[in-house]
Computed example of a mutant assay.
Amino acid sequence: MAIKTQPTDASVPEFLDSASPARRVDEGHQIDEIMRAETGVEGVMWGPSIVGYGTYRYVSPSKTSRTQGDWPKVGFSPRKSAISFYGLKDLPDGAALLPELGSYTEGAGCVYVKRLDQIDLTVLRRLIRIAFSRGDDPLP
Rank of each mutant, 00 (worst) to 15 (best):
T105S: 15
D136R: 10
P140M: 06
I130S: 11
S60N: 12
R57A: 06
G102R: 02
L16I: 02
G28W: 02
Q6L: 15
Q118C: 02
L97P: 00
G28E: 07
L16K: 09
V41Y: 03
G109P: 00
D120V: 02
S81F: 03
K89F: 01
A108Y: 04
G135Y: 07
S49I: 00
K4F: 06
P92Q: 10
V74I: 11
E14S: 12
P138A: 12
K80I: 03
D120N: 15
D26V: 08
G28S: 09
R129Q: 14
I83Y: 10
L127N: 05
L98R: 03
G47F: 10
V25R: 14
V44H: 04
T67D: 04
V25L: 05
A2V: 05
S11Y: 04
G109N: 14
T55K: 15
G109Q: 11
P21H: 08
P99R: 09
I83Q: 08
R129S: 10
D9N: 15
K63C: 03
S133R: 08
L127I: 02
T122P: 00
G28R: 07
V51A: 13
A82H: 15
D70T: 03
I130G: 09
F15D: 03
F15L: 03
S18A: 15
L121G: 02
R36N: 08
I130Y: 07
P99E: 08
L97N: 04
E33D: 14
C110I: 00
I50T: 14
G94C: 07
I3F: 09
I130D: 08
R66T: 11
D32Y: 01
V123R: 04
G107M: 06
G40F: 05
M1V: 12
I31A: 10
A10H: 10
F15S: 05
A131H: 07
I31H: 06
S81Q: 15
S62T: 09
V74T: 13
Y56M: 11
S84W: 12
V113A: 11
D120Q: 04
H29I: 01
I34F: 04
D26G: 13
K63H: 10
F15E: 05
R134G: 12
L88A: 12
D117C: 07
A10S: 13
T122G: 12
A82N: 14
V12I: 04
Y104W: 05
G54A: 08
A10R: 14
A96M: 02
V111L: 08
A108R: 14
T39C: 09
A131S: 15
D70K: 10
A82R: 10
I3H: 04
G43T: 05
S65Q: 13
M35C: 11
Y104E: 05
E38R: 12
G75S: 11
L98T: 01
C110H: 11
Y58F: 15
D137R: 14
G40S: 05
M1P: 09
K63R: 15
L91N: 04
S81I: 02
K73N: 06
G87I: 03
D136G: 15
M1K: 08
S77K: 09
S11G: 09
K63I: 04
Q30H: 11
D9A: 14
K73P: 01
C110W: 06
L101M: 05
G47H: 10
M35T: 03
L91R: 12
I128F: 08
A10I: 00
R57Y: 15
I31D: 06
V123D: 04
Q68I: 00
